[in-house]
């Protein structure tokens, strides 16, 4: 994967396949600790502990088209390459939490990428699922709650093109405000 937003997209797709209708996405950067955390918490079907322990193995997957599953192993590899790690906490019937950490200043840390496009693509394809997006830099935070947006829109679908464009711009402003100057690829 070229950037972290593509990894995020992949993991969000996992949550959707797990039947989640509420996904909390937190991206938190701490310049003081030189630490970037990406956390995805879903209310999907969850995994038995035996499966949750083994999903970072590329030869473990639940899909039936082939015997390889690369989403989590690749995300973990990207975290490990940047001095971080990936942890999974899952309970059957409750949901799954995936948390990946990265050293912000590590030469091999992938850039954040286009978070706004990842989120709006997911909303466009899965309007029925709600997402709560939190961006944080220790001093300030930005929150987007799609349930609140849907309530404001009333009978207008969240998949309306103008709405998607607004969401993308709104998220881009949030990313710039929170991570500008904190992640060196995003101008302050």
């Amino acid at each position: 994967m070229k950037d972290l937003s593509l990894h995020l997209m992949d993991l969000l797709q996992n949550s959707i396949v797990a039947g989640a209708d509420l996904i909390e996405i937190t991206i938190a950067a701490s310049a003081r600790q030189d630490l970037l955390v990406i956390r995805i918490v879903d209310n999907g079907c969850g995994m038995e502990p035996e499966l949750a322990e083994r999903v970072d193995n590329p030869f473990v997957t639940t899909r039936d088209t082939r015997k390889v599953g690369l989403g989590i192993p690749l995300f973990k590899a990207s975290a490990n390459l940047a001095g971080g790690d990936l942890k999974i906490d899952s309970k059957p019937g409750r949901g799954t939490t995936v948390e990946a950490t990265f050293r912000i200043s590590h030469i091999d840390r992938l850039p954040l990428g286009d978070i706004a496009e990842t989120i709006t693509s997911m909303i466009a394809a899965h309007p029925e699922a709600d997402m709560l997006i939190k961006l944080d830099n220790e001093k300030e935070s930005f929150v987007l709650d799609t349930a609140g947006i849907k309530a404001t829109l009333g009978e207008v679908p969240v998949t309306e093109y103008e709405v998607l464009c607004w969401l993308k711009d709104y998220l881009n402003e949030g990313v710039k405000k929170i991570f500008g100057g904190v992640l060196n690829e995003i101008a302050g």
Partner: peptide
């Protein structure tokens, strides 16, 4: 198609 393979190959800009 938006699994790991699709995303890595550039499916997101195609969908967009």
């Amino acid at each position: 198609g938006m699994a790991t393979c699709g995303i890595a190959a550039g499916a997101r800009p195609v969908m967009n």
